[in-house]
Nucleic acid binder design. Sequence first.
DNA 1: CTAAAAACCTATTAATATAGTATGTTAGTT
DNA 2: AACTAACATACTATATTAATAGGTTTTTAG
Lengths: 143, 143
Amino acid sequence: MLISTRGRYALRLLIDMAEHSGKDYIKLKDVAERQDISEKYLESIVKQLVTGHIIVGLRGKGGGYRLSKAPDEIVVGDIMRLMEGGLAPVACLENESFNCPRMGMCRTLNFWRGLDDVIHKYIDSYTIADFMRTDESGNDYVI
Amino acid sequence: MLISTRGRYALRLLIDMAEHSGKDYIKLKDVAERQDISEKYLESIVKQLVTGHIIVGLRGKGGGYRLSKAPDEIVVGDIMRLMEGGLAPVACLENESFNCPRMGMCRTLNFWRGLDDVIHKYIDSYTIADFMRTDESGNDYVI
DNA sequence: CTAAAAACCTATTAATATAGTATGTTAGTT
DNA sequence: AACTAACATACTATATTAATAGGTTTTTAG
């Protein structure tokens, strides 16, 4: 599994926030309810997004979260890399610490790099805006 | 991690077998040594490849394994799907049993399907022959 | 000024997958 | 008959995932 619940939930959360953004801050409780995701689990996801400067939190009564930039500036690839801590399809590409001794002579390394490329290219071609409802018909489907 | 050691090792094993194939059957012990992979662990991988009709085993002295078809007929995508048991990048696409209740209204499903597509398209564009050494210079690199 | 609300923080846990290891048994060759 | 190599089954340590639990801090509203 390349993408875990953290990445998927983060995406749904951000789309939800983008669609419900107005003057007020958005409460996690509301998102959790609408998206049917455990509020407590969402908290840990949201924390990461705050650290990554994707969203901003405001404490206290009347507080909540808001996006730190426009939906069309939030690249899905950035969210996934943030939430999953990298997105390497194979261990060889994950980090420096792996440091495979076969690196220099490996026949398959470039193949994996190519796979890594197509994945990042794809997810970097989408922003949160691409997932938002474009009309007011109440149509929840993206065709 | 989309691809585990099983998928990676299977690929290296098949490339190794393709390059060392002659009239004799290839012994697992030799592949394990050349590739520096535990022979016992390779056994479990090889078992899956036999079941999947990618390679054929011959018991007894002088036995071993051989490819069941030409290297350029062995598609890497088929190997990965066999070894990893599917290759879904997200749980939603994995199997019928997951059966997400949001399937019908999910805003992100098509995005994940697209990701799934680019992954399969990429790995299906390679065969074992693409990894084999083309000259006799002893050059182990694929540029 | 106090109570409520909401973000923020830290620790724990059940379940599952991964990457092997260990110990055999069966079949076929020399 | 001895040897070899595939084939088979069971076990294990470690890590990750997907949460849950229970609390603390900050801020606004009444």
